[in-house]
């Protein structure tokens, strides 16, 4: 997380712990209020103050009235900068929605909406979640809402919570750093990372159901049958359709076997859990890519064969949450 300006790390962590205790219950949206908005001078603010001090010394030393005057003008401008920076962050309302599922290692993109409770402009609002780069948002007073995507890096499969994010701004002068911690209730499913070098899929591990008759592969053409609802559109046999006028679907060998089962128990016994999930994940992706009807068997869960995005998601989610959901 972005360090606080001019504050050593251990103190910043202490401050954060203290501030987090003051956060309200997590909701899908949060409004920034004065009570939880913090502001500190930046390094540049300190530099500016040093210059002001030098000017004041000069004014005293040279007994120069206009130098006094401009010194006070600059001080007032700097002070107003603080108010403006505070104002720039205050009264913002943030809302978050759940992000689309991603594979572990990819960044989950959480949709955020920013709106102003008091309908004035907010510029250079930066939002940051954990170690990712901050994203920048602007809200003109004519706009009611601004939508953006907050990337959150993922490491492990399972659910990822958006959790605590830091919203900060240094606009307009960069002399002050105003920030606020917000906890938003939004989550995303993180699938296991697909294994890069999975073992070859072999049929036969399956002890029940249909026995596969063909071993050649999934791509060999087996014939044409009548179209059934749910068949992949890229498997339509256009020539046959043109000839007969009825919808026809091409059939392949693997498919001719109707379906395959991706089975946990098929894999070597000494393989660890995460590796198994990775391999299964890769198999699901491959099968889905080739339009093969597949089912999934993992301990405690048995998903009957199917195709399509929804089916793929159900299977991958089952992998993602394996051993996590009670």
């Amino acid at each position: 997380m972005q360090e606080l300006p001019l504050i050593p790390g251990f103190l910043a962590r202490y401050i954060e712990r203290w501030a987090v205790k003051r956060l309200p219950d997590t909701d899908y949206q949060a409004t920034i209020v004065r009570q939880r908005l913090y502001i500190l001078p930046t390094r540049q603010g300190l530099l500016f103050t040093t210059v002001l001090g030098t000017i004041l010394l000069g004014a005293i030393n040279y007994e120069n009235s206009l130098t006094y005057m401009l010194c006070f003008l600059f001080a007032s401008i700097g002070f107003l900068g603080m108010i403006y920076t505070h104002q720039n962050l205050n009264h913002l309302r943030l809302g978050a929605a759940s992000a689309k599922a991603v594979f572990a290692g990819q960044a989950a993109q959480f949709p955020l909406s920013i709106s102003s409770v008091k309908q004035h402009s907010h510029y250079n609002i930066r939002i940051q979640c954990k170690a990712t780069d901050a994203i920048c948002a602007h809200l003109e007073d004519t706009e009611t809402e601004s939508l953006l995507m907050l990337p959150v890096t993922t490491k492990r499969r399972g659910y990822i919570q958006l959790g605590r994010i830091k919203i900060y701004t240094e606009f307009p002068f960069g002399l002050f750093h105003a920030w606020c911690w917000v906890e938003l209730n939004a989550q995303a499913v993180v699938y296991p990372e697909p294994d890069a070098h999975p073992p070859q899929y072999t049929h036969g591990g399956r002890q029940h159901g249909h026995q596969m008759t063909q071993q050649e592969g999934y791509d060999d053409f087996a014939g044409i049958r009548k179209y059934r609802k749910g068949d992949a559109p890229n498997h339509l046999a256009w020539k046959a359709i043109a000839r007969t006028g009825d919808l026809q679907t091409k059939q392949f060998y693997a498919e001719a076997a109707d379906e395959i089962w991706l089975d946990w128990h098929q894999l070597a016994d000494d393989m660890d859990v995460e590796k198994r999930l990775s391999v299964l994940c890769r198999w699901i992706l491959d099968a889905d890519k080739q339009g093969i009807k597949f089912g999934l068997i993992i301990p405690g869960k048995n998903i009957s064969p199917g195709t399509g995005r929804q089916h793929r998601h159900v299977c991958l989610k089952a992998l993602a949450l394996f051993g996590i959901e009670a």
Binding site: M69, F72, L73, F79, L80
Partner: peptide, 17 residues
């Protein structure tokens, strides 16, 4: 706007500092 808003504060400090 900011410079104009700073003027009253400047004036007070100029007179009373």
């Amino acid at each position: 706007t900011i410079v104009l808003q700073a003027l009253p504060m400047m004036l007070v400090m100029f007179i009373l500092f």
